[in-house]
Simulated assay, not measured.
Amino acid sequence: MSAPTYLDAWLSGPDDTRFYTRTYTPPTPPVAVLVFVHGAAEHCGRYTHTHTSLSAEHGIAVFAYDQRGFGKTALDVQNRTPGAAYGKTSWTNQLEDLDWAVRTAQDAFKGVPIFLMGTSMGGGIVIGYLARRNRPSDAESLISGVIAGSPCIKLTREPPKVVIWLALQLARVHPYMLYPVRNNPEDLSRNKETNAAYAGDSLVRTPGSLRSLGDMITEGGRLLTENYAYWPEDTPVLFLHGTADMVTSPVAAQALYEKMPAKNKNMIKYPDARHELHNEPGGVKEEALKAVVDFINLR
């Protein structure tokens, strides 16, 4: 695979938030631009190999950013916004920030089709961006397709309802109190090397704050029970999920997929694969990458 080639920059977004961003530009005019949203606890740098391949080998530009409340956007003391903190975000912030990212990519790659992709929490966000009553009036026309990798619609191991209720009540008083437990790296993939890198990554912390996690669970459930109906039927969508995912529920993702009114939709399941398809061994990461490229090229 080609060496990583990207431009990193600090850009001002909603609420004057300074976002750490990466732009991967192909050596030839891009066939598309992919706006990418990472998952909880992590940052866009964990996808360098995937984004490099998309750009250098497949002609797809990538615009990625560390979400508000995560990665360098939250933790880089020299460059972050004053007042920024780990986990300090919400579902409303995340949708506003994604809209900003889409329009930033549109300005950078004028006339090039825009696709969205998110993984885990980011998968729920990219679906939620379009599956809502009050989406931006031009959002549907801006987006050529959406890819949801292991989207968080429900957690595989859901906490008891009483625990969720108590956490939501506490979040009203202390919204940005951090969830005290980190993800188990062994749940992420069968790749020991990338799991070890995750465990030692200084930008990886807990999955987020009580508010950000509460929003993730609440809005994921709302996608499944009501907001799916607002999906624009002419916007194609692709779901990718491992059947052995112990973080986000493949059963819930399947249920959402079946409900969505998209005329053009597909769901690909990877037997025995865990949460991070882009790190899974045994040919899974290559198959998942090909599915992304094929989905974009077909459109």
Rank of each mutant, 00 (worst) to 15 (best):
T81S: 15
G87V: 03
R80W: 01
S90E: 07
R68A: 10
S55Q: 08
T48R: 04
G59T: 02
I60F: 07
A74P: 12
D76F: 09
C44H: 10
Y65D: 09
A40M: 12
E42T: 14
T73C: 11
A41M: 01
G83K: 10
Q67F: 03
F36Y: 09
F70E: 05
F63A: 08
G45F: 02
H58V: 10
V37N: 14
I60D: 01
R80H: 07
T50P: 00
F36M: 13
V62A: 03
H51W: 11
T73N: 04
T48F: 01
A56G: 03
P82W: 06
G59L: 08
F70R: 01
S53L: 04
F36Q: 05
H58L: 10
Y47T: 10
K72G: 00
A84Q: 12
E42N: 04
V77N: 11
W91A: 00
S53K: 08
T81R: 02
H49Y: 05
T73E: 07
Y65H: 14
A61D: 07
V35A: 04
H49R: 13
V37T: 14
V77Q: 14
H51L: 14
K72C: 01
D76Y: 00
L54I: 03
K72P: 01
L54E: 10
Y65M: 15
H49T: 11
W91C: 00
G87S: 11
V62Y: 07
K88H: 12
C44Q: 15
Q78L: 00
A85P: 07
C44V: 12
K88F: 06
V77K: 12
A85S: 15
H58N: 15
R46T: 11
A64P: 08
K88C: 07
S55H: 11
E42R: 02
A64C: 13
L75M: 13
T50F: 07
Y86E: 03
R68C: 11
S53A: 15
V77I: 14
W91G: 03
Q78M: 00
S90G: 03
Y86S: 05
Q78F: 00
G69Y: 07
A40Y: 01
H49F: 04
L54Y: 08
G87E: 06
G45I: 06
T48W: 00
W91T: 08
L34Y: 05
G69A: 14
A56Q: 15
Y86D: 02
A74S: 11
H51I: 05
K72A: 14
R80K: 15
V62T: 08
V62P: 00
T89F: 03
I60G: 05
R68L: 13
C44N: 15
G71K: 02
A41I: 01
G71D: 06
A40C: 07
A40E: 01
A74W: 13
L75R: 04
V62N: 06
D66G: 03
T52Q: 09
Q67W: 03
H38P: 05
P82H: 08
K88A: 10
T48V: 14
H49G: 00
H58I: 11
G39S: 03
A56M: 11
D66S: 04
Y65W: 15
K72E: 14
A64W: 13
S53P: 00
I60V: 15
H51N: 14
T48M: 08
I60P: 01
P82K: 06
F36T: 09
